[in-house]
Measured scan of single mutants.
Amino acid sequence: AIERGSKVKILRKESYWYGDVGTVASIDKSGIIYPVIVRFNKVNYNGFSGSAGGLNTNNFAEHELEVV
């Protein structure tokens, strides 16, 4: 089962992080479509409006993740 702290591989082909491994930061139990927040070591794009980097978290559905 996917739980907080799990290392997961991203299976969503259109994702910037496809094939990468991230760490589960949290799981939303409220029934939303993409409840699993995954944190990565790298950012997906340069930040804007003065922020240092881009996003390094993204929401995924459990079926888009594979525990490694």
Rank of each mutant, 00 (worst) to 15 (best):
A1C: 15
A1D: 09
A1V: 11
A1F: 07
A1P: 11
A1R: 13
I2F: 06
I2V: 09
I2G: 02
I2K: 01
I2Y: 02
I2W: 01
E3M: 13
E3L: 08
R4I: 15
R4M: 13
G5M: 02
G5N: 05
G5L: 03
G5K: 02
G5I: 03
G5W: 02
S6A: 13
S6D: 10
S6I: 09
S6G: 04
K7Q: 13
K7P: 06
K7Y: 11
V8E: 02
V8D: 02
K9Y: 02
K9M: 04
K9S: 02
K9D: 03
I10G: 01
I10K: 01
I10F: 02
L11C: 11
L11F: 01
L11M: 07
L11S: 03
R12A: 09
R12Q: 05
R12W: 05
R12L: 08
R12S: 05
K13M: 07
K13P: 10
K13W: 10
K13D: 04
E14S: 11
E14W: 05
E14Y: 04
E14G: 08
E14H: 05
S15E: 03
S15K: 00
S15D: 12
S15Q: 00
S15G: 02
S15C: 14
Y16N: 04
Y16S: 06
Y16G: 03
Y16H: 05
W17G: 00
W17N: 02
W17S: 00
W17T: 00
W17P: 00
W17R: 02
Y18K: 00
Y18P: 00
Y18N: 02
Y18R: 00
Y18L: 01
Y18W: 04
G19Q: 08
G19V: 13
G19R: 04
G19C: 15
D20Q: 06
D20R: 10
D20G: 06
D20S: 09
D20F: 12
D20K: 09
D20H: 10
V21C: 11
V21H: 05
V21M: 05
V21S: 02
G22Y: 06
G22H: 03
G22M: 05
G22Q: 02
G22K: 01
G22R: 03
G22I: 13
G22W: 05
T23V: 12
T23P: 01
V24S: 01
V24K: 00
V24L: 01
V24Y: 00
V24F: 01
V24E: 01
A25P: 01
A25H: 07
A25V: 14
S26D: 13
S26M: 12
S26K: 10
S26R: 11
S26H: 13
I27Y: 08
I27C: 07
I27R: 01
D28N: 07
D28T: 04
D28E: 10
D28H: 04
D28R: 04
D28Q: 07
D28W: 03
K29D: 12
K29H: 11
K29P: 10
S30L: 07
S30A: 09
S30Y: 05
S30H: 05
S30P: 06
G31M: 11
G31H: 09
G31I: 10
G31S: 12
G31W: 09
G31F: 11
G31L: 11
G31T: 09
I32T: 13
I32D: 13
I33M: 11
I33T: 10
I33E: 10
Y34C: 13
Y34F: 10
Y34G: 06
Y34D: 07
Y34L: 08
Y34E: 07
P35S: 07
P35K: 13
P35V: 15
P35D: 11
V36I: 14
V36M: 03
V36G: 00
V36Y: 13
V36D: 00
V36N: 00
V36A: 00
V36P: 00
I37Y: 09
I37R: 09
I37V: 13
I37L: 14
I37N: 08
I37K: 14
I37H: 10
I37W: 14
V38P: 02
V38Q: 00
V38T: 00
V38C: 04
V38M: 00
V38G: 00
R39F: 14
R39C: 15
R39K: 12
R39I: 14
R39W: 12
R39Q: 13
F40M: 04
F40Y: 02
F40Q: 03
N41I: 11
N41Y: 06
N41S: 12
N41M: 09
N41H: 09
N41D: 13
N41Q: 12
K42S: 08
K42M: 04
K42Y: 05
K42W: 06
K42H: 08
K42T: 10
V43Y: 14
V43R: 05
V43P: 14
V43K: 08
N44C: 15
N44S: 11
Y45I: 15
Y45R: 14
Y45F: 13
Y45K: 15
Y45P: 15
N46M: 07
N46F: 09
N46L: 11
N46K: 03
G47W: 06
G47T: 05
G47I: 04
F48V: 14
F48E: 15
F48M: 14
F48N: 14
F48W: 04
F48S: 15
F48K: 09
F48L: 14
S49L: 13
S49R: 02
S49W: 12
S49Q: 14
S49Y: 14
S49H: 09
G50K: 05
G50N: 08
G50Y: 04
G50S: 10
G50L: 03
G50Q: 08
G50T: 07
S51L: 09
S51G: 13
S51C: 15
S51K: 05
A52K: 11
A52S: 11
A52H: 08
A52L: 10
A52W: 09
G53W: 02
G53C: 15
G53E: 14
G53N: 11
G53T: 11
G53I: 10
G54H: 07
G54Y: 07
G54M: 06
L55R: 07
L55T: 14
L55P: 06
N56D: 14
N56T: 12
N56W: 09
N56S: 10
N56I: 11
T57M: 12
T57L: 05
T57A: 08
T57H: 10
T57G: 07
T57E: 13
N58R: 06
N58I: 10
N58Q: 15
N59D: 07
N59R: 09
N59G: 10
N59M: 09
N59Q: 06
F60L: 02
F60Q: 00
F60K: 00
F60V: 01
A61V: 02
A61Q: 05
A61L: 06
E62R: 08
E62C: 14
E62D: 07
E62Q: 09
H63C: 14
H63N: 08
E64N: 01
E64Y: 03
E64C: 06
E64H: 02
E64T: 01
E64P: 01
E64F: 03
E64S: 02
E64W: 04
E64A: 01
L65F: 03
E66Q: 10
E66G: 04
E66D: 04
E66M: 09
E66P: 01
E66C: 10
V67A: 06
V67P: 07
V67C: 05
V67H: 04
V67Y: 04
V68L: 10
V68Y: 06
V68R: 02
V68T: 06
V68I: 11
V68M: 10
